[in-house]
């Protein structure tokens, strides 16, 4: 387990020191949300109605943006080869990478959520369910994304294909997440969202580890 936490700490440190750290993703997220009123008009009741969905889509896109670096940097400098030979199971390494990715990319977005929510005129009563839905649902985005990143590691223009293969798999998370973001805390969509996250926690590391072994072989 020490190796696991060492890997998490290393990835968090690297993410903090590499080109702007978490602020690039955060900036992207805020800009996407800002673009929506320009597109649909500054109609406050409309914005507050579509707000949770918009915020969920923006979180999804911001996650997607950072996914292609998940294994790519380690692949380029050769440390991925060494990781694969280490005694820590590859599945656990994937899990560590996902945890670090979630902490450095998604958690800042969730922290910024109360401020960003003003942009779409979100009702204050919805804030808590929305944040809980993000906390419950976004781990599945990192986990499924790890599968896509592992499949496209070392591929030229891999980022484009990555979004093509990952986004369809995100559909259930988006549907239940956006619905849970407007509903009550223990409602049906929130439970489904939790189930989806747990299922991806159980399955995605194995698929991503298999994909990593294939890509690096």
């Amino acid at each position: 387990m020490r190796a696991f936490w060492a890997l998490v700490a290393r990835d968090i440190k690297l993410a903090g020191r590499l080109g702007g750290g978490p602020f690039v993703g955060l900036g992207f997220f805020i800009i996407v949300v800002t673009m929506v009123p320009f597109g649909v008009g500054a109609d406050l009741p409309l914005l507050s109605r579509i707000g949770p969905g918009v915020l969920w889509v923006a979180v999804l896109l911001a996650t997607l943006l950072s996914l292609d670096r998940l294994f790519q940097a380690d692949f380029e400098d050769g440390s991925l080869d060494l990781f694969l030979m280490s005694p820590l199971p590859v599945e656990m390494q994937v899990l560590a990478k996902c945890l670090a990715h979630w902490i450095t990319n998604t958690v800042p977005l969730i922290i910024a959520m109360p401020a960003v929510a003003f942009l779409v005129n979100l009702e204050t009563g919805i804030m808590l369910p929305l944040i809980v839905s993000l906390l419950v649902g976004t781990p599945s985005l990192s986990l499924i994304g790890a599968l896509g990143a592992a499949l496209t590691v070392g591929v030229r223009r891999g980022g484009l294909v990555l979004s093509l293969i990952v986004l369809p798999l995100y559909v259930p998370a988006l549907i239940f997440g956006a619905a849970a973001g407007t509903g009550d805390l223990m409602g049906t969509p929130m439970l489904f969202l939790g189930a989806f996250s747990l299922a991806s926690l159980a399955l995605a590391p194995f698929a991503a580890a298999a994909a990593l072994r294939i890509s690096v072989s």
């Binding site: 599968l147 698929a207 298999a210 994909a211 294939i214």
Partner: peptide, 10 residues
């Protein structure tokens, strides 16, 4: 093999 893993995940 990579596409097969994706196909099965799908």
């Amino acid at each position: 093999r990579a596409t097969s893993v994706f196909c099965l995940a799908g």
